[in-house]
Structures are given as C-alpha cells and as structure tokens.
Simulated assay, not measured.
Amino acid sequence: MPSGGARANAGRMPDPSSEAFQSRAQGLFALPAAGYKRPHPKLPLPDYEVWRTYKDDDGIHRELDAEASERWNRREREVWNDLWRYPQGYAWSRPQYLYLQHTVALYVRQYVLCETSDARAADRTTLCRYADAIGLTPQGLRLNGWRIIADEPPKRRRTSAKIVEFPDPRDEWASLQHD
C-alpha cells in the first residue's frame, strides 16, 4: 500500500536565499512583518458559559458560574485582539481569506481551553491543527501560500578585501531600459 503525500511538515524547510525559493516566492501572498494595524471584527462566537456541577443529598445539580464565565469571555477577547495584531491578521482581513475568521475564533476558544487545567492531550492537538490552518506556524504559512516580508531592506553583507564586487547585470539592464 503506498504511503506518503503532501503534509504540513513533510521534508526540510526551503532555504530562503536559494534561487528556487525566490522563484516560488513570487506567487506567495506577502504579509507585513509589522503586523496588522487596522480595526478588526469582533469575536464571532457566542459567549462561553461555565457550568459548575455539584452533588448533595437531593442529587446532582448544575448551575451557571457567572463570574467564571465573565473571566473566560474576557480572556477570549484578549487573545482575539492579540492575534489580530500578528502579520496573519492582514491576510484574515482580505476578502479571499474571510472564511478563516471563524477558524481563528475557534482557535481562540481552544487556546483559552488549553490554558485551563481541564485541557486534555486531544485539546492541545486540536489547537496545533487550528494553528496550522490559520497560518500561525511556519508549516501553516507555507500551506496557505503566505510569506512574512520584512519592512526594512536587508543589510548588505560585509565583503572581504579579497572579493571583487561586480555590478548585477539585472540592475544594468533595468537602468538601460529607462534611458
């Protein structure tokens, strides 16, 4: 039986300085490294309710814990607002990626759940899968076709006295085209 196929973390990460990577990167969606600074939507999920279960002589009872529910919902809003400051927030706001906003909200709920002592291994696994789906991991960025671009130009390498620098022929060609 054949196995394998494309997976989120299969194989080595490509070398960003290679020519093959540069040619593939032309079609990637660029995200600003400074992050997303515009207003973002409200958390689309309904408020979470924390229920307490207790047993007494009359049987088992459940009651809503309003204080714990408020703390939970406040934490969800904090995580939601923090996530939208990431470079990925720029992509989530674009029309072609609007479908990911609900998955981002589910990631937030799962994230807050994983902060509690009630979280299980399956909850943490689900959190990792959501992170890949919404582009928060290097594999997720690659799967979504996104690339985070530095806002500042890269620094030139120091050159040795033994190395003679030649002008880039592409720059010369471009300057001839403008003349």
Rank of each mutant, 00 (worst) to 15 (best):
G135S: 02
K55I: 08
V104N: 05
D132N: 15
R74P: 01
E49W: 00
T116Y: 01
P46Y: 00
E67W: 02
W80P: 09
Q139S: 15
R77W: 04
P87N: 06
L100A: 11
T53K: 15
V104W: 05
V112Y: 05
L45N: 00
T137S: 14
Y111F: 15
A133F: 03
D118W: 07
T137N: 06
K42W: 08
V79P: 00
V50T: 05
W80F: 09
P138R: 14
E49C: 06
R62L: 03
L106R: 14
P46V: 04
Q101C: 11
L136F: 15
Q110N: 08
K42H: 12
Y130G: 00
R52L: 15
Y97T: 02
A68R: 08
D47H: 13
A131I: 04
K55S: 13
R62Q: 14
T103E: 13
T125I: 10
R62S: 12
N73C: 07
S69T: 09
W84Q: 06
R109N: 12
Q139A: 15
R129K: 09
Y86T: 13
I60K: 13
H40V: 06
K42T: 10
T116I: 01
Q110F: 02
R94D: 10
L83C: 14
Y48T: 15
N73S: 03
T125H: 07
A119R: 08
N81C: 09
R62A: 02
D65G: 08
D65R: 05
P41M: 02
L98Y: 03
N81G: 12
T103P: 00
V104C: 12
G135I: 02
Y48D: 06
R85A: 14
E70S: 12
L106Q: 14
D56E: 07
N81V: 00
E115D: 15
L136A: 12
L100Q: 08
D132E: 13
L106M: 14
L100S: 05
R85F: 07
C114L: 06
R52T: 15
T116M: 09
R52Q: 15
L100W: 05
C114A: 06
A133T: 13
A68Y: 03
W84C: 05
P44Q: 05
A121L: 11
T53G: 05
D82Q: 15
T125A: 11
A119E: 09
V50Y: 01
V112K: 02
